[in-house]
Structure formats: structure tokens, C-alpha cells
């Protein structure tokens, strides 16, 4: 794009981000503050993920952008266009073809490979913020690995509901040391993070934090021995491709209680239908 650097950000900003990313990789799950810039998209709409992608992406990359698992949701389209325009990179909707995948709220169903990087857009990087809003205090809690309050919260849910009732952004322990927000992916996706072959990068623009999970790293969803973590999905088959294992969206089809369930991962669903045809 004329008048702007490759991938929009200037080189000094990229260096700042890149240094933060390397530290993030060296301390899995630990949030690194960084000098997030105002982007031409609003805070809360993926500016952290965009800054991470912009500092990582190169001419040889193929970019996939999804929101809610879909390539065609408006914000995914908007972000994909931003990089097509500012970096001129190839884009794809096929998970297997992508070298960099930027995502909001889902991990693709197709297992990622060691040749891929997944960049998560993170609205709230601090897993403890609902228990303690002061980031000065939560920083101290991370330093001391003082995560008792989170276990108490989970235990209170067990006492109240008979089970842990967190559905998304389900907290995980990374590398046995840092409690981490997986971003608002459904708890269904949490197990995909564990020992994933791809490098996982997380960007929170408004909160100005970056963190990372290197490949093959332990990512454990918090639970109790007698109340183990459970990854829920709607107990149906996809109405389009018939998959009984993928994460499903519920689509309301009329105002009389009619509904159907379809894959949230649009590329996964389309690929299955292509194969079946």
C-alpha cells in the first residue's frame, strides 16, 4: 500500500514487537507488556493479533483469518483485506495451506502442523481479572504463582452447580508455571492447545500484552481430580457435513423452536463436503 511500510507497521515498531515475542516464547504463558500502537482498526477488534501478525508475516507467507471459526465473518474479511492490501500476501481459507492463521474465538478443527503459526486475538489477557481487577496485584500473583483464588472460584462453581461452569476462555496452566487466558475460545478447543505442533502467539492490543505457547508445551485446563475438565459441544451431527466431533453453531431456522447445527469451522465443513461429493 502506497505511503505505508510492508505490513503497515514501521520497522522500529516491528522490532519492539519482535523482541517482546521472543521473550514471550522464552517464558511460555507469561504476559509481556508492549507498546501497542493505535491501528486503523478499533481496539477490541483484533488490534493485538494484527500487530503480532504484522511483525511476523513475510512475503512468502499464506494468511488465513477466521472469526468464530469462519473465514467469511465480516471482521475476518476486514482483517484479511487489511493484510492483502498492506503486505500483499497470499490469503487462503484452507487451513492446511496457511502458514500464518489469525483467529478470534476458535482453533481450526484440522490439526495444525509444525510449519504453522497461529495468532490469537485476545480481548482480555489477564486470566485473573474477574477475581482481581488491579493488574498491579495480578502481576504479583503471577510472580508468586499464587493461583489459589482461581481454584477457589472453580470450587465454588462445583459447590453451586455440581460442576465447573466455565464455557469459554477457560483458564489453563502453561508449562506448569503460568496461569493463562486461552482467549475466548470455547473450552472445547482447549485440549487442542496442549502440546500443539504449531507455535501459538497471543496479542492483546488494548491491554498491551503479548504472550506465547511454544510447540509441544503442556497446556492444562484447570480442574479437580473428582471434577475433571470436560470439553462440551452440542450433541448433534453437522447438518451439512455430518461430522459428529466438530464444534457446532446452532442456527435458528424459524420462530417455532426450529434449529439446526452446523460446523463452526467453515473450511473444515466445506472440505468434508468436497470429499464426500
Amino acid at each position: 500500500m502506497k505511503g505505508y511500510n510492508f505490513a503497515y507497521l514501521d520497522e522500529q515498531t516491528k522490532r519492539m514487537l519482535r523482541r517482546a515475542l521472543l521473550k514471550a516464547v522464552a517464558i511460555p504463558g507469561h504476559q509481556i507488556p508492549f507498546g501497542a500502537r493505535e491501528m486503523p482498526l478499533p481496539y477490541g477488534w483484533g488490534t493485538g493479533g494484527i500487530q503480532v501478525t504484522a511483525s511476523v508475516i513475510g512475503r512468502g507467507d499464506t494468511l488465513k483469518v477466521i472469526d468464530q471459526g469462519a473465514d467469511d465473518t465480516t471482521n475476518a474479511v476486514s482483517i484479511r483485506r487489511f493484510f492483502a492490501k498492506t503486505a500483499g500476501v497470499r490469503t487462503t481459507t484452507r487451513t492446511a495451506e496457511a502458514t500464518v492463521i489469525q483467529t478470534r474465538h476458535r482453533i481450526p478443527e484440522t490439526p495444525l502442523t509444525d510449519a504453522q503459526i497461529i495468532v490469537y486475538q485476545v480481548p482480555q489477557p489477564e486470566p485473573l481479572y474477574k477475581l482481581e481487577p488491579s493488574r498491579t496485584e495480578t502481576r504479583r500473583m503471577h510472580a508468586l504463582a499464587d493461583y489459589g483464588a482461581m481454584h477457589v472460584k472453580l470450587y465454588e462453581q462445583v459447590a453451586r452447580y455440581g460442576q465447573i461452569a466455565i464455557s469459554y476462555d477457560y483458564p489453563v496452566m502453561v508449562n506448569g508455571r503460568h496461569l493463562m487466558a486461552p482467549s475466548p475460545i470455547p473450552a472445547f478447543d482447549n485440549p487442542k492447545m496442549h502440546r500443539m505442533k504449531a507455535l501459538q502467539l497471543f496479542g492483546a492490543g488494548r491491554e498491551k500484552r503479548i504472550y506465547a505457547v511454544p510447540p509441544y508445551t503442556e497446556v492444562v485446563s484447570l480442574d479437580f481430580e473428582d471434577y475433571p475438565f470436560r470439553a462440551g459441544r452440542a450433541p448433534h451431527a453437522c447438518a451439512l457435513c455430518g461430522d459428529t466431533a466438530s464444534y457446532l453453531d446452532e442456527v435458528v431456522t424459524d420462530d417455532r423452536g426450529g434449529r439446526m447445527f452446523v460446523c463452526s469451522d467453515t473450511n473444515h465443513c466445506a472440505t468434508r463436503r468436497e470429499r464426500a461429493a
Binding site: 481496539y43 478470534r104 480481548p123 475466548p184 470455547p186
Partner: peptide
């Protein structure tokens, strides 16, 4: 940005 981002689709989280 953050208040208005609630307009973005959240149907995956809502489904969960």
C-alpha cells in the same frame, strides 16, 4: 473499541 466490539459475532462463545 472494547465497548463496541460487543457488536462482533460472539456466537461461538454464546453456543458454549
Amino acid at each position: 473499541g472494547f465497548v463496541e466490539h460487543l457488536k462482533l459475532p460472539h456466537y461461538v462463545d454464546f453456543q458454549s
